[in-house]
């Protein structure tokens, strides 16, 4: 059933994404073409102007494409589970967690596809179609250089930091979307102005999350804060220690993200399963 739900999530939005990817590909091809033309026809102001406009358009499209996953996913969740379509979705013989998880998995699928599309189109636009693969290929070289610069200890800390960063970025879409889903679930509890209350709840939850994080950060990672404060006045701290502090801070952020995401998920699932209140 989960696979079927995901299938319909993808079917619901593939045309919108497809059209945006096609537009981005077209602009990137045009940008490459006019850039080559400009280099062949020296100092042609018109060509330079077109290339500049296309470059700005391409950058705008990249921003739109990168932000559209969250926008489309939010709209889809609202329309599909909270508004009229919810009358069908909530009467399907599937558990509530599947409805939420299918939407979350769709967000990840679209995020990966958007990342690929932006990577490929950027390569075309800047005349380096294989830059992504070249960058991946140069990783061993970068590792060797990093080991030389930071030493074995510093390099190990840097590697851990990069892994933590990777985990954090993987968690990022889930964190954002579960916060939004939870806000919609809270908004659903009100008998009137559900959308307005959902927006209000989003900010209330965000502020609460920031307060809780800050308070915990002050207690849990006071050592990190003190070390960073000390480093402002003393001489430069060694790379190994600096990366160590950064890793600790990153790990705390990841733990908080996981705790909040799991909390939002459980709360949203329970509310939609037990306190569903469609208009």
């Amino acid at each position: 059933m989960l696979r079927k739900l995901i299938k319909y999530e993808i079917l619901a939005d593939y045309k919108k994404y497809g059209a945006t990817f096609a537009a981005m590909l077209l602009v990137s091809c045009l940008l490459l073409f006019f850039d080559k033309m400009t280099s062949w026809i020296n100092n042609n102001l018109f060509m330079k102007l077109i290339t500049g406009v296309l470059g700005a358009l391409f950058m705008a499209l990249v921003v739109v494409v990168c932000s559209m996953v969250m926008v489309f996913a939010t709209m889809r969740f609202y329309k599909n589970l909270v508004r009229d379509e919810g009358y069908l979705m909530h009467t399907l013989p599937v558990p509530t967690w599947m409805l939420i998880v299918s939407k979350l998995i769709a967000v990840y699928i679209w995020t990966i596809l958007v990342a690929f599309a932006v990577g490929i189109c950027s390569g075309i636009a800047f005349g380096e179609p294989f830059w992504l693969f070249e960058m991946i290929g140069s990783i061993p070289e970068v590792i060797t250089e990093a080991r030389e610069i930071f030493g074995d200890g510093g390099y190990n800390q840097l590697r851990t930091f990069i892994i933590y960063m990777g985990i954090f970025f993987v968690l990022l879409p889930a964190m954002g979307m579960l916060h939004i889903y939870f806000s919609f679930a809270l908004g659903n509890l009100f008998n009137r102005h559900k959308l307005g209350m959902s927006v209000l709840m989003f900010f209330v939850v965000y502020i609460a999350e920031q307060i809780i994080s800050s308070v915990f950060m002050m207690f849990v990672s006071s050592d990190i804060m003190r070390s960073v404060m000390d480093s402002q006045t003393s001489t430069a701290i060694p790379d190994e220690r600096m990366f160590g502090y950064m890793n600790e801070a990153m790990l705390v952020s990841i733990i908080f993200s996981v705790i909040f995401s799991v909390g939002y998920y459980i709360a949203a699932e329970r509310i939609f399963a037990k306190k569903l209140n469609l208009e």
């Binding site: 619901a12 329309k79 009229d84 379509e85 919810g86 009358y87 069908l88 009467t91 399907l92 013989p93």
Partner: peptide, 24 residues
């Protein structure tokens, strides 16, 4: 879930997704 398998519900509002064709 068990009752949803055997209950067919028609609400008073339109609940089908607009992106769909009738076949979908």
């Amino acid at each position: 879930i068990e009752t949803k398998k055997i209950v067919s519900y028609l609400p008073e509002r339109t609940y089908l997704s607009e992106w769909m064709t009738v076949r979908q």
